[in-house]
């Protein structure tokens, strides 16, 4: 956990790709894409049916590690709106355990718009929390400080003949984009023009390592 300051608010960035907000004891994650594997399985690609279990286990561990009292999921929490119905018993139990013991909010995204309200926790299109806008996809026209997901940013670089790729945060003046947290979520190059347009203005890719936050300027 390393300090990440955004819009005057102190956060802790976790190397698993989540953000902790100490003042509220809130954990923020984006793009869980639960039940992505079973969505593919319906269509003939039998991906390992363990992605929801893996994602929820990682999330549970972070909740325990940080002592979070609130969890905000910034959209695309399920790979599709029917994903909740396909959860295995084991994944369902893990999720119920979380949503029943923590103040849980689902912000919906393009994949899980129309998420059923009986999933546990509250379902919202977006939220404003202590002056910060939380939504799924960054709104270029909105000048308020904003936390979002959607793009799955990932930093790729070559160093000494080796390729390193890591999920990363992308920060601009008033926008902070979280990496995808789901076990089977791929990434988009942090320097991709689509991310640049969403952030608008100079942006940095932020990568938490053991003791500090690495910062890479992204080409405008």
């Amino acid at each position: 956990m390393v300090r990440l300051s955004f819009s005057g608010v102190d956060f802790l960035a976790l190397r698993q790709g989540a953000l902790f907000w100490p003042a509220r004891r809130a954990l923020l994650v984006a793009d869980l894409h639960l039940e992505k594997a079973s969505w593919y399985a319906c269509r003939g690609q039998m991906l390992p049916p363990y992605d929801s279990i893996a994602t929820l286990a990682d999330l549970t561990a972070l909740v325990e590690e940080t002592g979070a009292r609130e969890v905000w999921c910034l959209g695309d929490s399920f790979h599709d709106r029917a994903g909740g119905e396909r959860l295995s018993d084991r994944a369902r139990a893990a999720l119920d355990m979380l949503t029943s013991s923590i103040d849980w909010s689902w912000i919906t995204g393009n994949h899980d718009a129309g998420l059923a309200a009986d999933i546990g926790g509250r379902v919202l299109a977006e939220a404003v929390v202590d002056g910060l806008v939380l939504r799924h996809e960054a709104h270029p026209g909105d000048g308020r400080p904003e936390l979002s997901g959607h793009f799955h940013p990932r930093l790729r670089l070559q160093m000494r003949g080796r390729n390193v790729a890591r999920r990363c945060f992308v920060a601009g003046e008033t926008k902070l984009i979280l990496p995808a947290f789901g076990a089977l979520t791929g990434g988009l190059d942090a320097g991709d023009p689509a991310i640049g347009r969403a952030v608008g203005g100079p942006a940095r890719a932020l990568v938490p390592v053991a003791d500090r936050l690495l910062s890479f300027p992204l080409a405008a």
Binding site: L157, M159, R160, G161, R162, V164, V209, A210, L214
Partner: peptide, 18 residues
Amino acid sequence: RETVAQGLADDALLEEAE
């Protein structure tokens, strides 16, 4: 000629890149 990083964790490479 073949500078392949050995024994270095990805983290160290990222730090060097930064």
